[in-house]
């Protein structure tokens, strides 16, 4: 059951959310195509949770709008049925057993695959007749994921689901997530500040920084559009041939290193004094986050 390639799972337009006078998210314009596994990246406080809460209808926008499969998620049980959501710290009723949580889901959802959830949990050896408060953090996260998957959602939103887990549990969680969505073709939007988790699994990137979208797009395309360039020291890196815009520049006495968006994807610069290297997703994200930081300091200085 693959989604239509042109369908849009999540779309926001000038979306904004304000807490008091501070904007947690502002002017957010996004389009997440269906079938993607998207990473929502940004430092703490950048608005990741706010965006996810807006997408699942927990929050009401103060500006703009958000659409999930073309519909407003707020107060609409039909759209809610299409969205699976795993909140930060994977909250569960701690005195409920996993079986009882699955029963709860069956009572609260018209479409509910109880067997899927139960089979997943027994498959990875999680006791379903013990109160989930007595399980480990990793096991609770697996229960929360199983509950979200049992809705058979078309869009699965996860808010730092693995942040509190140890590396092994995190690895297992991401593995479980990926095998589940590979089977179902579900669109996934996964927020994290742990880049390493996302690099392996995501094919779409949304980078949030200080309430704004810094960068969004297909991971392969983004990587193809950016290069690390090394050449003789220059104070005008924008003038280097083949550079469309400089994301980050660093200088030694004799050398300048740039992370730049190039004019044509995949080509090396024409100037032989400069050498180009491919960038990793982590380099790219860090460069954008660092660039925004410098920009901000300049503004405030």
């Amino acid at each position: 059951m693959t989604e239509d390639a042109h369908e849009t799972a999540l779309e926001t337009d000038a979306l904004g959310k304000r807490y008091g006078r501070a904007w947690a998210l502002r002017g957010c314009a996004l389009r997440l195509p269906a079938g993607r596994i998207a990473a929502l990246v940004g430092p703490n406080g950048a608005g990741k949770s706010t965006l996810l809460h807006l997408a699942v209808g927990l929050l009401r926008p103060d500006a703009g709008q958000v659409r999930v499969f073309g519909r407003d998620p707020r107060g609409d049980s039909e759209t809610l049925a299409d969205i699976g959501f795993v909140a930060q710290d994977t909250p569960l009723y701690r005195d409920f057993t996993a079986d009882e949580l699955i029963t709860m889901g069956a009572r609260l959802n018209r479409r509910w695959d109880a067997d899927l959830a139960r089979d997943r949990l027994t498959g990875i050896g999680i006791p379903t007749r013990k109160p989930v408060g007595g399980l480990s953090g990793g096991q609770r996260a697996q229960v929360a994921l199983a509950l979200a998957l049992a809705k058979r959602p078309r869009l699965l939103l996860l808010d730092e689901p693995a942040a509190a887990l140890d590396p092994l549990a995190r690895h297992e969680f991401m593995g479980a997530l990926m095998s589940a969505v590979a089977e179902s073709g579900t669109t996934v939007l996964l927020s994290s500040h742990l880049l390493a988790d996302l690099e392996r699994v995501c094919d779409y990137l949304i980078l949030l920084q200080t309430a704004h979208v810094q960068l969004a797009g297909d991971v392969d395309e983004l990587l193809a559009q950016h290069r690390t360039l090394t050449g003789p020291r220059t104070d005008r890196p924008e003038a280097v041939p083949g550079v469309r815009s400089v994301i980050r520049a660093s200088h030694t006495d004799r050398q300048t290193t740039l992370l730049a968006r190039t004019t044509t994807t995949g080509t090396v610069p024409t100037d032989p004094a400069w050498s180009a290297h491919e960038v990793s997703l982590e380099d790219l994200v860090l460069a954008y986050l660092g660039a925004a930081d410098t920009h901000r300091t300049e503004v405030t200085a």
Binding site: V56, G75, S77, L80, A81, A87, Y93, L108, R111
Partner: peptide
């Protein structure tokens, strides 16, 4: 307080109901 409103209000029924 336990964050479970994010669990129960994102199931298939509206929070009004």
């Amino acid at each position: 307080e336990h964050g479970t409103h994010r669990l129960v209000w994102t199931q298939g029924i509206t929070r009004r109901r």
